[in-house]
Amino acid sequence: MPEILVPITLFVSIVFALKIVVEARFRSKLLQTGGADELLRSMARDEDQRRRHGALRWGIVMVLLAVAFAIIQAAGWRDLNAGTLAVLIGAVGLGNLAYYVISRKLD
């Protein structure tokens, strides 16, 4: 399994590093042009809100996944079959729907 995970992890790391570099260059160029103070404040505010919303989404999804795993454990299901997958996928779907409802109320 490590022979599969190492290249995938390397690829994801490279993509993430490139994303960070591109965003940093964009902000640097934006600062150099001047007169973009309000735009930078707006971008920082939006980024902060996206970060909070991302944490909210993952928190809701993880809690519902934990509930799904507890249901699977309580039911005594030991094999991976359609029923266990349905419970797990349903939990992720419910988590995303709950996030949508909560984020609409926050905005």
Rank of each mutant, 00 (worst) to 15 (best):
F69Y: 05
L64Y: 05
V61D: 00
V67Q: 06
A17P: 01
I89H: 04
A24H: 13
K105F: 09
A91V: 04
R57W: 03
L5V: 12
G54W: 01
K19E: 15
Q73L: 07
V22G: 11
A74T: 06
R57N: 06
Q73F: 13
G34R: 08
D107E: 08
R27E: 10
I8M: 11
E3C: 09
H53L: 14
D46K: 05
H53C: 04
M62Q: 09
G93I: 09
F69G: 00
L85I: 06
G59W: 01
H53I: 05
A66L: 13
E47K: 14
S42H: 06
M43K: 03
R27S: 10
L10E: 14
H53D: 02
L80W: 04
L88A: 07
A36L: 05
V67L: 07
A82P: 08
R41Q: 05
D48C: 10
G83R: 09
A66D: 02
A66V: 02
V92P: 01
G83S: 11
R78Q: 05
I14K: 13
G90K: 03
G83E: 13
A36M: 13
F16S: 13
I8W: 08
G76R: 02
N96P: 04
R41H: 04
A75M: 11
I60Q: 02
L88D: 02
R57F: 01
K29S: 09
R51C: 07
I102V: 08
T84I: 03
E47T: 10
L10N: 15
L56E: 00
Y100Q: 06
R25W: 14
A24I: 10
R52M: 06
W77T: 05
I60K: 02
L56T: 02
K29Q: 12
G95T: 00
V92D: 00
F16M: 14
R45A: 12
L40M: 04
V101K: 08
Q32R: 14
Y100P: 00
L80E: 09
I4D: 07
L5R: 15
V92I: 11
A86F: 06
G83A: 13
R78K: 01
L10G: 13
L94N: 00
L40Y: 05
K19G: 12
I102Y: 00
M1E: 12
L39R: 04
A36T: 13
L10W: 06
P2M: 08
V21A: 11
I60H: 03
Q32M: 10
R25H: 09
